[in-house]
Amino acid sequence: MEIVKGISMILILVGCFFFATGTIGFLRFPDFYSRMHATGKGDTLAVLIALVGLSIYHAAYHGAILDSIKIVVVAVFVFLANPTATHAISRAAFRCGVKPWTREGSK
């Protein structure tokens, strides 16, 4: 039981780490596309890892397998929907003429 607790704790902490890196990237990157890149990739992975950790904890300590399956279904939904939304927003921005950041143009 302690091993399961440790595994779920490690997974949730890794998820929080990726949330933090995604947020730092969102705040620090120079232009729209790289910000979408940071949040789209970082948050998707973070949600996936953290929710899997939560579902393992829930199944082991509360015995509610159905609730764990629901949490995993939420993770799968975010894993499909979040990159698609990021793709759609980036594509719309490219069509509206948002210029990507370059080293020469940043003066």
């Binding site: 939904f77 499909l80 929907a81 698609t84 793709h87 759609a88 594509r91």
Partner: peptide, 16 residues
């Protein structure tokens, strides 16, 4: 005309 968005919405709308 975006294949990714159309496929994903076709996949997700029934589950929604």
């Amino acid at each position: 005309d975006d294949v990714i968005v159309k496929t994903l919405s076709r996949l997700l709308i029934p589950f929604m």
